[in-house]
Design a protein around this nucleic acid. Structure first.
Lengths: 146, 146
DNA sequence: CAGGATCCCAACTGATACTG
DNA sequence: CAGTATCAGTTGGGATCCTG
């Protein structure tokens, strides 16, 4: 069986007799990180901050509903990926600042392109969800009419 | 307290005395969907398919490791968001095809911009993770040396 | 101030079996 | 073929309490 490796829409895949088969999506783990509950909000704050730099308490105060634990975890994960760096000042009380790395900042345009699409289409998505849910509801009502 | 609503980097936020406070990120639910384990793979397959259209079994065969259940759930969620439509043919055996909607197809360029950034920076991210994990390991070894 | 350590519940995911 | 139903394992996220 011949397996030719190609690239389309920028994605590598293997052409088989059953159609294209994409290789297991490694970069998916990046999207998984960004898709979690708080990461985008953290990145957005740093994006608009002077010097792409903010301290822990400012982030916590600026993100409604985030707990200390989740902010810490989110920042650790971003630091692990090399998207931001942690600056620790051993004063009393201690002060910690987080700053986007060059790589972190380089992600902003791509991120912006995506969120911009979301903003434009969000109302329509909401409508679709409602329509779908109501159609679903009507179907159930018909299956079990009281 | 004065609260001025502004927009920066395309994101709406409120200027407060403590800095910018972003509104709870509604569109996050879109990124959360895309960040799950299979959605991007499904979208990629439909993106390169003729007519942006594929049948269930083709998708299942083209995505390594996906179970019937997870493919069904993924497709249902995308359908609910209006990104694809389901075409059911009541034959025996039944045949079902999934096709990107106009809105679904309009997302592809933005998605491509993002995944392209990921591809370019992925090796570096992997390096950062390894470096971080090893530094972490060394720190633990020092705390508890045998 | 900036977290680390625990506990706990809900949601996501997968394996398996069954069906129109 | 293209699902649905059920059960079980794992993970994510929040609440709470404690500390250098």
């Amino acid at each position: 069986m011949i397996r030719v490796e190609r690239v389309i829409h920028g994605r590598p895949y293997i052409e088989t007799k059953d159609g294209p088969r994409f290789k297991p999506c490694a970069p998916n783990s990046v999207l998984a990180r960004l898709g979690d509950k708080w990461t985008i909000l953290v990145m957005s704050h740093l994006a608009v901050a002077p010097g792409h730099r903010l301290r822990f308490s400012t982030l916590k105060g600026g993100i409604e509903g985030i707990t200390q634990r989740m902010l810490t975890l989110t920042l650790r994960n971003l630091e692990r990926d090399g998207l931001l760096v942690r600056h620790y000042f051993p004063e009393v009380p201690p002060r910690v600042e987080y700053e986007l790395t060059e790589m972190g900042a380089s992600m902003l345009p791509a991120l912006e392109g995506f969120t911009s699409w979301i903003r434009e289409n969000w109302p329509r998505i909401v409508d679709c969800r409602h329509a779908y849910d109501e159609a679903q509801q009507r179907a159930e009502d018909q299956d079990a009419p009281v």
